[in-house]
């Protein structure tokens, strides 16, 4: 599903430092991983590689059976449709309603409009935002925007779900609900990787961890079969 072999990433090809250095790990299909590490350790950069916003500078990265270093741009676009991402800064489109933001991945993948409505309304009901479906993000609170972003990430039932500090703007109850959703999706076969600083969540939902420090993988703890 996800295989990293000595993967490094450097943003500036000339003289910039490696933000990720020779990472090697594997996440099987249906696996769950906590991605841990202090700020600046490279968690977001690793997620960028995994949601195909960058190609590795060296090493070999395989996602969903495709070598990311050599895949064509059109192939990468199709792969991204199978990956859901919850961004730390939400990345909602401010001119679109909550409904249209959640519907966006389905529209991009060409789903007929008639099928989109029912799925999106169901998802908005689940995250408790159906009543605000016509409201644009600037008029929503941080927590509501977070929930819209989560709904958008999971609406297309992705094969891989990546989340970068997804509970940062949620209260305890919402955070627990979100983790239950992630575990439910994982139970249904979705591979989930969650970057977080929230050790309490990690303790509540024990799972294998990847720990980064200064761009290196310093610990890979696999406590389950996954």
């Amino acid at each position: 599903m996800i295989r990293c072999e000595r993967v490094s990433l450097r943003y500036s090809l000339k003289d910039g430092p490696d933000v990720l250095r020779e990472l090697s790990f594997e996440v099987p299909e249906g696996g769950f991983r906590w991605l841990l590490g202090p700020s600046g350790a490279g968690k977001t950069s690793l997620l960028r590689l995994l949601y195909l916003a960058a190609r590795p500078t060296s090493g070999r990265l395989s996602v969903l059976g495709t070598d990311i270093g050599s895949a064509s741009r059109s192939k990468l676009a199709l792969l991204r449709r199978r990956i859901g991402v919850v961004f730390q800064d939400f990345r909602l489109l401010p001119h679109l309603s909550a409904f249209d933001n959640v519907a966006l991945p389905l529209r991009i993948s060409g789903r007929p409009e008639g099928q989109i409505r029912a799925d999106v309304n169901e998802m908005l009901r689940w995250v408790g935002l159906y009543a605000l479906r016509h409201v644009t993000p600037p008029a929503l609170s941080g927590g509501e925007q977070q929930r819209v972003a989560i709904a958008r990430a999971v609406i297309s039932r992705p094969d891989i779900l990546l989340a970068d500090e997804p509970t940062g703007n949620l209260d305890e109850v919402q955070a627990q609900r979100l983790l239950q959703l992630f575990h439910e999706l994982n139970r249904l076969g979705t591979t989930v990787i969650v970057a977080t600083h929230n050790i309490g969540l990690v303790q509540d939902y024990p799972a294998p961890t990847l720990r980064l420090q200064a761009g290196r993988l310093v610990e890979e703890r696999v406590t389950e079969d996954a």
């Binding site: 949601y51 059109s74 676009a77 991204r80 991402v85 966006l104 991945p105 991009i108």
Partner: peptide
């Protein structure tokens, strides 16, 4: 917005 839809799988 373009980077967001690109990240969601939009083709060129």
């Amino acid at each position: 917005a373009i980077e967001t839809v690109h990240g969601l799988g939009a083709t060129d």
